[in-house]
Design a protein around this nucleic acid. Structure first.
Length: 494
RNA sequence: GCCAAGGUGGCAGAGUCCGGCCGAACGCAGCGGCCUGCAGAGCCGCCCACCGCCGGUUCAAAUCCGGCCCUUGGCUCCA
């Protein structure tokens, strides 16, 4: 069975064949670090993470690059608010973003390159483009000449003859064609450049603008253009041709289109074999974005709901379709996660109990394991369909619950196989952390204290003092500990 | 206006590439029942879908073809 991917370049689902049959070069267009990351970003990160994990599961070695754009007017616009200079603001948000990523249980990328550390490579690439006749200098700025690159528009099917000019009015007079875009921009940042991104109470704009960095170049002092960074960093850290380029759907045009033009013009090689676009996350009918201000921050959501609920939410819609964020969909994700996690705990408890027997065989459970082990990979191979993959796990969860409910003696072998399946697919591929482990000493102590309260409650219950038993349960609930009674005694979750 | 992706039950969301097992998955919400001191969890069952509209191809269409309507995204920094 091979992996199939929907390739934006062709619009078709294709068998995935990397250049090297054993390894994959993957690039994700990362974040401009000027605002806190929101759930929409997390969606792209998490699906990329799962793609990475699945490819590894299938035996590929994955080299995964995810950039930080730390040079940008929007960052300068935050000076005085989130830092003292462009570099300082960027640094703060890079730190914050890496924390967000860690909190989402994302596997580390191989490299997280920053634009500010790749200006020499960017200048090299721009020089190459000028030498080859694909770019021209104008008033100290350099533009890509779209008319020199006949394939321009092949990703997004844009017709450049109908295109409006990009950039502000001053730039238009410098350009030969309206669709030409900046590779290098002369001078620093002007106050007018940051005006629309700046908050009203952020302080004097002229002081902010002074902190914007500039670099020496063959065309004089200036800053890198908006699109060239991804080309320069992916060729530097991966290769001229990469296997998968992932990005949000809103980057198809112009950003990704421009990346292709620059890279292919410069290297003469195909830039990326497969283009994967994660569709947008919507709230009440519109996309979630920093500029619309309708976002839920990664930090807030993870701290309120926990990593597993957030991941379950994000993976409950295949990357390739738009997703809806609302109270209801979040609630559903919470229920789905709990259902899975409970099944996992139950399987583990049953397998470890004295009632587990190697000679007992429950066909229903055994078959469910087989089906899940078949359905999960099939779903992932079919364009990384995480929704289907999750469904397969949920079916296994049902089988586990049924088995433990209906039998006095447990099928040790099948329970173990179920646990292994949850671990291999749910934990390792989807990144869901089953079975709350009491890792540190404090947590263990807390667990033991809770056990003690539960013992007390059992005695009250045995004596028929239900009111006092309920008081104890309510108090625990208030502290965030949910008590659930079962045939084998009470259990708790926190 | 142009480009792209979608329109499936109360919600959410698979299936559409390769037509039949789709009499439409998994789940949430709702309704019965079992279990239970109660609650929760779980189990069993049920409710809700003429798969945007119209036409065509076919023995057979949510799935293929044509037209139309609507939504979202892009065309300007944005995952």
């Amino acid at each position: 069975m091979t992996v199939h991917v929907t390739n934006t370049l062709t619009g078709e689902k294709e068998p995935f064949e990397p250049q090297d049959p054993d390894s994959v070069l993957l690039y994700l267009c990362g974040l401009t670090v000027s605002d806190p990351a929101h759930l929409g970003h997390a969606r792209a990160w998490t699906h990329t993470d799962v793609i990475h994990r699945w490819l590894e599961h299938e035996g590929y070695e994955v080299r995964h690059v995810e950039n930080f754009t730390d040079i940008n007017e929007k960052i300068v616009a935050r000076v005085g608010e989130d830092g003292d200079s462009e570099a300082d603001v960027a640094e703060n948000y890079v730190d914050e973003t890496l924390q967000d990523m860690r909190s989402l249980n994302l596997k580390r990328a191989t490299v997280y390159p920053r634009v500010s550390e790749h200006v020499p490579e960017i200048i090299d690439m721009v020089e190459t483009l000028v030498e080859k006749g694909y770019a021209y200098e104008s008033n100290g700025s350099v533009y890509f000449d779209v008319s020199e690159y006949p394939d321009y528009g092949k990703l997004s099917n844009q017709d450049i003859s109908e295109m409006e000019s990009q950039g502000d009015e001053g730039d238009r007079t410098e350009k030969r064609n309206p669709a030409d875009f900046a590779l290098w921009k002369a001078n620093g940042v002007a106050e007018s450049d940051i005006a629309e991104h700046r908050h009203d109470d952020a302080g004097p704009a002229d002081e902010a603008v002074e902190t914007a960095e500039t670099w020496e170049s063959p065309w004089g002092e200036g800053r890198p253009g908006w699109h060239i960074e991804c080309s320069a960093m992916s060729t530097t850290h991966l290769d001229d041709t990469i296997d998968i380029h992932v990005a949000g759907q809103d980057l198809v045009f112009p950003h990704n289109e421009n990346e292709i033009a620059q890279s292919e013009a410069a290297t003469g090689e195909q830039f990326s074999r497969y283009w994967v676009h994660v569709r947008l996350l919507e709230t009440s009918g519109e996309k979630m974005s920093s500029s619309l201000g309708n976002f839920a921050t990664v930090e807030t959501l993870v701290s309120e709901e926990g990593t597993n609920v957030v991941r379950t939410f994000l993976l409950s819609t295949a990357y390739h379709n738009r997703a809806t964020f609302s109270e209801a969909t979040l609630n559903e994700a919470r229920e789905r996660w709990e259902r899975l996690d409970r099944a996992y705990d139950r399987a583990a408890a049953a397998a470890d109990s004295a009632d587990a027997r190697t000679k007992v065989v429950d066909d229903d459970l055994r078959d469910a394991v087989v089906e899940t082990r078949d359905a999960f990979p099939a779903a992932m191979n079919d364009d990384f369909n995480t929704r289907e993959a999750l469904s397969a796990l949920l079916e296994l969860a049902s089988a586990v619950h049924r088995h433990v409910d209906e039998h006095d003696r447990y099928d040790y072998g099948s329970l173990n196989a179920a646990i292994e399946t949850f671990d291999e697919f749910g934990r390792d591929v989807l990144g869901l952390a089953f079975g709350a482990e009491a890792a540190d000493g404090d947590a263990r102590l807390a667990d033991e204290a809770i056990e003690l309260v539960l013992d007390l409650r059992e005695r009250e219950r045995a004596a028929g003092n239900y009111e006092r038993a309920d008081d104890l349960r309510n108090e625990l609930e208030r502290l965030g500990v949910t008590v659930e009674d079962s045939d084998d005694g009470p259990t708790f979750r926190r």
